[in-house]
């Protein structure tokens, strides 16, 4: 048992930590492709990064063009952008303060230190030359928090709500990346077959830190269908939709067992999981990738909303 507010604070703390990492990863992938693309395509790529992050209206209200400097600043430091790395880390820490009593001192100190370190590192605009190093820092810091979580926290309801936050955010992120880029995976596009496609495929994989693991599993062969399969249905891939659903399901099952109480969110989670268990990637392509991903994003959000109600996050 814990306060509903605390459960909500944990959920959001770990959502924001995950989002900070995702924003950093997206930025890194976009930056790589912008570097290798021709001039005008570079701008297109930055625009697509902003679209993927789901923050296009905010960006366009702030900047007129999609050049590297603006995009990097908006994604890393802009406090007006709720998904910027700095905003996310500040929100994660603020939620961490709120739930301080539920965290081990290691987790709290790692979170607080991350905030201090990044506040310093992001005090001034980050140039392209410093970008790689800064992104490494973000990744290292969030790994420290995650390590502290796994190494020091009791496996009770606190852990479950933290996990649910992480995987709800991650599922949302993977689905969005695929939804923005799915057209490059469509068979009708594949026959174009040039190196651009390969680069686009690579960007998708890099956005979810899966370029190397995908190649390992596929012996260096790349195909749009197997990339989609990997990111949607492969349970070995820790950022795939199926994996995220599995983890959310496990955490909810543990809560059900701990509390001895089943809620509407348990049925919703079951339904979301079933959809992924019963399909093949071919079926998804036949019925429409975009429609499938939109449904995943909506259902994931509905589930998150139901969890908040069932466990009384708010008054």
């Amino acid at each position: 048992m814990m306060l509903g507010k605390t459960a909500g604070g944990l959920f959001w703390m770990f959502r924001y930590l995950e989002r900070a990492e995702n924003t950093a990863r997206l930025l890194e992938a976009g930056w790589r492709i912008a570097l290798t693309a021709a001039d005008d395509e570079g701008e297109n790529e930055w625009e697509s990064v902003i679209t993927t992050a789901g923050i296009k209206p905010g960006y366009e209200a702030r900047h007129d063009s999609y050049d590297a400097e603006n995009v990097i600043d908006y994604l890393l430091r802009d406090q007006g952008n709720p998904s910027s790395v700095m905003s996310c880390i500040a929100a994660a820490r603020s939620n961490g303060r709120l739930v301080r009593t539920a965290l081990s001192s290691e987790v709290w100190e790692a979170t607080n230190e991350t905030w201090m370190v990044l506040k310093k590192a992001l005090a001034r605009p980050v140039s392209e030359r410093q970008l790689h190093e800064t992104l490494m820092l973000v990744r290292n810091r969030s790994s420290m928090v995650r390590g502290a979580l796994h190494g020091t926290m009791l496996r009770n309801d606190i852990f479950s709500f933290s996990h649910i936050g992480t995987y709800v955010e991650r599922a949302d992120n993977t689905a969005r990346i695929l939804d923005v880029k799915y057209y490059v995976l469509l068979p009708s596009m594949a026959h174009v077959g040039g190196s651009i496609d390969n680069v686009q495929w690579d960007v998708i994989l890099r956005s979810v830190s899966a370029a190397r693991s995908y190649r390992w599993l596929n012996g260096g062969e790349m195909s749009p269908l197997s990339i989609a399969d990997f990111l949607i249905l492969d349970l070995r891939m820790p950022r795939s939709l199926a994996f995220c659903q599995l983890k959310i399901g496990e955490s909810l099952a543990r809560l059900e067992q701990n509390y001895g109480q089943r809620h509407p969110c348990h049925d919703l989670a079951r339904r979301n999981a079933e959809r992924l268990e019963e399909v093949t990637i071919e079926m998804i392509f036949d019925e429409g990738v975009h429609e499938f991903l939109r449904a995943c994003i909506t259902d994931n959000a509905t589930l998150a909303g139901q969890i908040q109600v069932d466990y009384r996050f708010n008054e």
Binding site: M1, M2, L3, K5, T101, D157, Q261
Partner: peptide, 30 residues
Amino acid sequence: SFLADQMGVELVESTDLRIEDGRVAMRTTE
């Protein structure tokens, strides 16, 4: 938060509390 943590008791705000059946009660996950 430090004292609540060290004592091992809940840290509540007034929005976590209400009166139920003549008692002060806190809103929990259960």
